[in-house]
């Protein structure tokens, strides 16, 4: 193991379904107290990685250690210390909200009395107290997600795994989950999450791993990646003429065409936005700060367009 601070260390990990490699020889690490996000389009292999780390899915090649334990050899020990929120909710519809927590806690062999108290705390934390006796079918999508998160915290996990924690939620519900995740992070919980949302990644993650087609393309902090891959500023142009395009090419600026819009990634310190404004006063354009989205579009844009 490389340093005792590594909570997860994956070496040359490949997962094949038949001859198709869903994850193709990736290496990564998650350090103690870190929040690491796997970012990538549909089918990139994010869930496959999560499933291997959480001992669900056998690894075809390579090795993953979690808390220093080999996931293939010690799944019980590893899972006892993980809190897992799967991509699709799997709350137990045969039980009430509170009962869901109590029954789940039994799988961890947690002492019954302590669990009652802990369940109540977690319901409070996730603003679900009034729903304690409700049926799962009566919960909104956001409430279900919060209950899944509460359930994942029952065993006081050393690492939390969140597979698309806010997909399909409205902005308020999303904010509430983000707040709670930030709070857990502040308490020192190590977090591994996957997401499609750049904003989610920039808001929550210390480090982002950009994936596409089973490979990790980029690895770094959100601000670092933005600066490194797209610079500080981006000009977006639409309804553009060939002249403008020729000008951009001539300047040697990196650019990408997507949905009839040209995104121009300006090198640091370049005043290209104003220059375009001067040369082509009638050209519709927008100068803005670069975001993680731009990194994503540049690196995985092709995959998105090809579907």
């Amino acid at each position: 193991m490389s340093g005792d601070a590594a909570v997860v260390s994956a070496r040359a990990v490949t997962k094949r379904y038949g001859s198709f490699a869903a994850v193709d020889g990736v290496d990564f690490e998650v350090r103690k107290g870190e929040c690491v996000g796997f970012l990538g389009p549909n089918g990139a292999g994010k869930t496959t990685i999560v499933r291997m780390v959480s001992c669900f899915s056998p690894i075809t090649e390579g090795r993953i250690r979690v808390f220093g334990l080999d996931v293939s050899r010690s799944p019980r020990e590893v899972k006892a210390q993980l809190g897992i929120c799967p991509q699709e909710d799997n709350l137990d519809p045969d039980f009430s909200v509170e009962r869901n927590l109590l029954v789940y806690a039994r799988y961890f062999s947690l002492p019954a009395r302590a669990v009652r108290e802990r369940a109540r705390e977690l319901l409070d934390l996730m603003q679900l107290r009034e729903k304690a006796g409700a049926k799962i079918q009566e919960l909104s999508g956001g409430m279900k997600r919060r209950l899944v998160l509460a359930r994942a915290l029952l065993n006081q996990p050393r690492m939390l795994i969140l597979d698309e924690p806010t997909t399909g939620l409205d902005p308020q519900a999303r904010q509430l989950i983000w707040q709670r995740v930030r709070m857990l992070k502040a308490r020192g919980t190590t977090i591994l999450l996957t997401t499609h949302y750049m904003e989610e990644a920039s808001q929550l993650c210390d480090r982002v791993l950009l994936m596409d087609r089973g490979e990790i393309l980029l690895n770094g902090s959100p601000s670092n990646l933005i600066e490194r891959e797209v610079g500080r500023e981006v000009v977006e142009l639409w309804n553009f003429t060939d002249e403008v395009l020729a000008f951009i090419r001539e300047k040697g600026w990196e650019h990408e065409t997507l949905d009839e819009r040209v995104h121009v990634f300006l090198p640091p310190g370049d005043d290209g936005g104003r220059e375009i404004g001067h040369r082509f006063p009638h050209q519709e354009h927008l100068l803005r700060l670069a975001t993680l989205e731009d990194v994503f579009l540049r690196k995985a844009g092709r995959a998105l367009r090809d579907g």
Binding site: K79, P86, N90, D92
Partner: peptide
């Protein structure tokens, strides 16, 4: 339909 087994397998259960 309920994915109950998946939920169980996210715990020390094999």
């Amino acid at each position: 339909y309920q994915r109950t087994f998946d939920a169980m397998m996210a715990t020390p259960l094999l």
